[in-house]
Structures are given as C-alpha cells and as structure tokens.
Write a protein that binds this DNA or RNA. Structure first.
Lengths: 245, 245
DNA sequence: CTCAATATGTGTGATAACACACTTACAAGT
DNA sequence: ACTTGTAAGTGTGTTATCACACATATTGAG
C-alpha cells in the first residue's frame, strides 16, 4: 500500500493562515490533505461541488471552455485562496473547469462543512468574501488585458501571477498548456516566450520555463499585473477587523 | 424649486422585489430615489463608496480605465442588481469607474445601512451573494468574449444585455460610447452596427439604436450572452431558500 | 436659417494574431 | 543506440482590427 507523504500544512495557505487560532481550530480537523497532479480536472463546468480546496503548493486554473472547444483562463487559484467559492456564494455549481496548472498539495473540505463554517460569520466569512473580491479583480483584469494588451504582455502577467503562487522559479509547463490558458495559439506563445527570453528575463526549455529576472519581468509587464497583485495585498493582508452589522 | 417626479418603485429592482415583504420593510425607508443622468460618474476607480444603488430603469456600466486612457467595460448593472458590492464583500472601494450608460432611476442606500442589512443574514444576504456570483459570471464571460469573439458578436451580446435591463427597444447611445464600453475603436462599432443593421436586426440612427428583431439578435450572438443570461435566471429567480449553516 | 458641434461613414495602409503545414529537437523507454 | 512521442521552432499566407485622415450627415442653439 502506498503511503503519500505530505509536506505542507494548512498554514501554507494564506487564507487559512490569516485566521485567528481559535477559529481555525474549529474546523482544522475537517481539512484533508490531497495531492493534485498536473492536468487533473477538479471540477468540470456545471458540476455540483462536493469539496472546496485550499491549495498550499498546487495552482489551479479556472478555465472556460467554449462550445467549439476553445479555452481561456478566467482566473488562477493558489496558496493565496480557495477553490469553490460558488459554495458560499450560493450557486453550488461552477461555470468553469478547474484544472491543475501546477502540481502540488492542497487541503480539501466537504461542501457542507465549508458552508457551515461560512455561516458562522466571523473572520473566516470576512476572509472568504474579501478573497472573492480579490478574485473578481483578477477576472476583471483578465477581461481588460484580453482586450487591450499583446500576447507578450499577457504572458508576462501570467508568468508573474504563477510565480507568486509558487515556491520556485521553475515553471513546469509547455507552451501548449499556456496557450490554452491565454486562449491563443501555441505558436503565439512560442514567439512571445522567445522575445521574453531574448530580453534575458526567462529561459525557455522543453516543458519548462525558468524565471531569471523577476524584476525585469515586472518592468516588462502591463499594469494589469500590479493592479491584481496590489488588490490581493490590500484585501488579504493579516489583521482584518470585521466591519459588518 | 425643482420637484423631481419619480416613476419607479423599489419593486422595479429585481433584487429588492425578490425579498420577502417583512425583510424589505426593515430598510425600505432607507432607500432614497435618485435620477441618474447619462454619462454621470457614480464612482471613480479607487473611491470609497458612500452609497450603494439599486437601479430600476437606469443602467450603470462598470468601466475599467487603463493608464493610457483606454477603457473597457467589465460588467453592467441594471434593474437586475446592485451597484456597490464592494461594500458587503469587504473591500469598501472599487477598482472600476461606474458610469451611467442609460439614463433612468435608482434607489440609493447609505453604505453603513447596506452593511447592517447584509450583516443580518437572511434572504437579503443570500440574494446579494447570489447576485455577486451572477456578476462574476458576467465578468468572466466578458473576459472570454474579449479573447475569442469578433467585435460584431460582442456588439450583439452587449445590445442584448442592455436590452434585458431596459423597458424599451430604443437604446440612446452613440457608437463612440459603445466603443468605450467594448474597448474597441469607434469605427469598429460603426462597421459592426452596419453589418447587424443589414441583417435587419437593428436600425442605426444618429445617437440611437433600435432593436428590430430581438430573436434574430439572439441567433446572431455568440454563446456568451446565453450563458450570462441563464446564470442570472438560475441564481436570481424568486423563492430562494437559505442553505447556510 | 445658418452655423457649430457632434455623430457617423469611408478609405488606405499597418500590424498583430490567425490558420495551416511542416521541420527540428529533446527525452524516456525498450 | 534507436525509436517514438511530444515539445518547440519556422515559414507562408490570411484576416481582423487598428491608426489615421478625412467626408458626410444630423442636431440643436442662436
């Protein structure tokens, strides 16, 4: 029998780490570690959600799939957040596919348990709503970036967002996969990656992109990255005080 | 002294109309009618929100403004919803400009009053969260549509979304205004509108677009419209039962 | 009625991204 | 070491949209 060894704890997820100890203690036992493999589809569009996930080292992409098979990413969830916001927002189902973009670990919680904890109010509810707002900013910025910026700029943005949710400068992913995320052709990614590599910001080898010059990437990227990044920081930094009712 | 006459009631807003009578009665006195003129900026990006708005006949666009002045709409709020979700989501500020896309009426409520009512839980909270999820679907679909569909398709989508939030087949708006919403050039809208008019779906006169064949538009539009429309119906139909905790 | 402001229509070229067809290179397994 | 599958690179056209520069049409104010 296989024994999987997990190397992360619930505190590796920023959302959980931001909770007061006593509040986290209420449901920590309901958080089950899972290992997520690259390419695994966690939810399919239209699925009723049975679990929510708090990634620690994994990154999950929210992908929209058109009728003709074309795909485009609308958002990305990593150690900064939670996958399955539809559960507490009241929809119960999702309108996008959730697919593992970078292998790693996460903690899952049963749908009903998540709803129960959310219903308590408290910091957890506040954090989940704030996270949802940050995710909305990310989705909005994706919309704007899709409209107004070049593939090269968008690739920079995507690499930075991924890097932020990763503990490593090494991104294990093919141009083909990235092209599905950005909703462009694979050749378009190859070309854009070459240009970025020529500037010395990344290196580009079969199946892997290495970030060489993070600061340089931040200089090359469109404003969309910083807007999203700032909003996550603003909404999700520790020490949230509850302001409702 | 001017006396403004208001022709709509709170029940003209679907979100308010869906509330049980006793719950609406709790804060109906705090809803103040206002008239919104075309082009008025209700919030500027970064503003702290003092009021939330429930449109009845007005339509408000959520516009993102880039550093270089380019704009793109990320979502649209009409009699289906509420403007100012950041208040109960916890952010307090917004990252987009809210501008009146179609003149009309709305009811406003003070920020703190909205937070108080949201904090009570109940149907109102449920509806606000569900509305937020529907809006996220709209924003997501905007992102996808921006990436994958032609200006002509996007214009169809936009006209239908506007029409759904209006009591009239007459849309008072210039190509220039629409081009700011869709984030394309004015000429692009002129061309797309001509093509749609040639198909007999709309007529196109100075400052006004008339919808002639709504069903034809629905046939011509990309799938994005139906996805958004269905999600609003699914999440916001009456008779919501609360499922939390 | 006339004028000025505004909205729309049109034309020419530039460019980014597309579609498709292929070659080259790498890495893992037999 | 060879084979095979997969990833990445390249080349030739096509197309949608852009950028800019105008022409024309409509509206409202004086």
């Amino acid at each position: 029998m296989n024994v999987t060894h997990y190397s992360t704890t619930v505190l590796n997820n920023h959302l959980l780490a931001a909770l007061p100890n006593d509040e986290l203690a209420l449901f920590q036992s309901k958080l089950v570690p899972v290992s997520l493999k690259l390419g695994t589809v966690i939810y399919e569009s239209g699925d009723r959600l049975d679990y929510a996930y708090f990634p620690t080292t994994a990154i999950v992409s929210l992908l929209y799939i058109m009728e003709n098979g074309a795909t485009a990413e609308i958002g990305m969830v990593g150690n900064d957040g939670i996958l399955g916001i539809a559960l507490f927002m009241g929809g119960d189902t999702t309108n996008s596919r959730a697919v593992v973009q970078s292998a790693g670990e996460a903690f899952k919680i049963k749908a009903q348990d998540l709803k129960t904890e959310f219903g308590r109010g408290g910091t957890f509810q506040t954090m989940l709503l704030r996270y949802t707002q940050a995710l909305m900013t990310q989705i909005s910025q994706t919309a704007v970036c899709n409209r107004l910026h070049s593939v090269e700029q968008q690739l920079c943005r995507w690499l930075l967002l991924s890097h932020d949710r990763l503990n490593s400068d090494k991104l294990i992913m093919t141009h083909d996969l990235i092209s599905n995320m950005l909703g462009v052709r694979r050749e378009g990614i190859t070309l854009a990656a070459q240009k970025i590599a020529e500037k010395g910001l990344i290196t580009n080898t079969r199946g892997t992109i290495m970030l060489i010059d993070r600061q340089g990437l931040e200089n090359a990227v469109c404003e969309c990255y910083q807007v999203v990044s700032d909003e996550y920081n603003r909404l999700l930094s520790r020490g949230i005080s509850r302001t409702f009712g």
